[in-house]
Nucleic acid binder design. Structure first.
Lengths: 109, 109
DNA sequence: GTATTATATTAGCACCGCCTAATATGTGTG
DNA sequence: CACACATATTAGGCGGTGCTAATATAATAC
């Protein structure tokens, strides 16, 4: 049986909902990067990064192109870039609001 | 030890990354709703919905106000509303691109 | 060809998130 | 007060997700 649209959408969003993946996205935002560049930059584990890249690609968030023995990853398009901006802006505002005013609310689930 | 900003941000985003929570957000988008209204609308389980509401509130995505024995939930502010719009737009475009052109890529992780 | 580098895949494990059922708390009503 | 209704919390099971280590594939260099 097929996944409902809202389920697929949730999965898409979850693509952004991980610390390491957010860092990868920040890393390749300005310019495409190879896996090893990302691994070096994030001081990460090659296998781990590779799996997160596969996840991001599977979610349609990034794309890859091969050049010789290197594989370059970059954001799928400019709208993903915009989405990252909006997420950051809204998060920054909410985080400030929450930590500054509402002593009751916390950012834990 | 404190959670890094990017970890908190990931958690914030994950607030949107669940089918039921997305449905709740759609439900309360237009106008605030009580828990029982949401439960009825989504044909859901009261305990389950209540937990998701706590999660959304904890993530700073929604707020609540009490009126008598009812508790009304609504989006925290208009920027959350905008974010939902942008997410939907980008997702729709990506979903179309992925399913139409790239036969290789799939929306699975 | 073999060796080396770049990346992907697999397996196993721990942990976290989601669900359901049951129970608790809180608020109004008779 | 007891009772009904609205919501929250707890406990337990279960599947998914992220991590590491090891192995596999693919491309280049020698």
């Amino acid at each position: 049986m097929e996944k409902s649209s809202v389920e697929v959408k949730a999965k898409f969003i979850r693509g952004f909902g991980d610390k390491t993946r957010l860092q990868i996205l920040e890393s390749i935002r300005r310019s495409e990067k190879t896996v090893s560049q990302i691994v070096a930059e994030l001081n990460g584990n090659q296998s781990n990064i590779s799996q997160h890249l596969a996840c991001l690609k599977g979610c349609g968030i990034i794309v890859s192109r091969q050049e010789g023995k290197y594989i370059y990853y970059s954001l799928r398009n400019e709208r993903i870039d915009q989405l990252l901006d909006v997420m950051e802006a809204v998060f920054a505002q909410v985080a400030e609001e929450v930590s500054a005013c509402d002593m009751n609310d916390e950012l834990d689930c």
